[in-house]
Nucleic acid binder design. Structure first.
Length: 193
DNA sequence: CCTCGGATCAGCT
DNA sequence: GCTGATCCGAGGA
């Protein structure tokens, strides 16, 4: 049995959570069916970050970002749904890509495609993934992964901040750009790629 | 009220 | 690489 990631996991620094979510499984229950994906790409949105939806304070749209750690913040942009997991202090981690599990493994490359693959909708906004309802997250296994850090994707403001993290060698990751390699979170600093 | 532009994606050059 | 779709939220007047 795999441990669900609970409140304590999300109630930590956002960069750390963003890195440690890599390899974790995002699971969405749909009646009797469960759809899941291994998370392979994340982005951090932090306090004082002009690109963060929480930057200008709470509104109806972003109120989930001010919820407890582990809250889902789901928003829509250009008719596309994207999902975040809230950490602390109105910071959050955007889930950008995943390896979808099932009889036909597939790659969901991009936050909109990931949500679509798992059936996440705007109705999931505000749900508590740490408590584990329709949506939950399970810890990754112990196999080491190599994490790459780089600039976030698709932003006009604060685009250069290295707040994107992804698993090296994963096909689902969005168009790779400039890279700087770091080690797996539970291991010591590793060799370069 | 009006205007602006976006944490995207698909499709085209 | 670039563009357009397409619409809603945010913010200013």
């Amino acid at each position: 049995m795999v441990a669900r990631l609970g409140r304590a996991f999300f109630d930590r620094g956002t960069l750390r959570v963003a890195r440690e979510l890599l390899g974790a499984r995002l699971i969405v229950r749909e009646g009797q069916v469960e759809r899941s994906a291994r998370i392979v790409e994340t982005e951090a949105y932090v306090r004082g970050d002009p690109a963060s939806h929480a930057f200008r304070g709470p509104t109806r749209r972003n109120r989930s970002m001010f919820g407890p750690p582990g809250t889902l913040y789901v928003f829509r942009i250009h008719q596309v749904v994207c999902a975040n997991l809230v950490t602390r202090s109105a910071e959050a981690v955007l889930l950008r890509a995943g390896a979808v599990e099932g009889r036909e493994p597939a790659y969901a490359s991009g936050p909109g495609r990931l949500c679509r693959a798992l059936g996440l909708t705007i109705r999931d906004d505000g749900d508590d993934a740490a408590r584990g309802g329709r949506v939950r997250v399970e810890a990754r296994d112990r196999r080491p992964i190599r994490i790459v850090t780089g600039p976030r994707v698709g932003l006009r403001r604060a685009a250069e901040r290295p707040l994107r993290f992804y698993v090296a060698g994963e096909p689902a990751v969005s168009r790779p750009r400039r890279l700087s390699v770091s080690a797996s979170p539970s291991r010591s600093r590793g060799a370069a790629r």
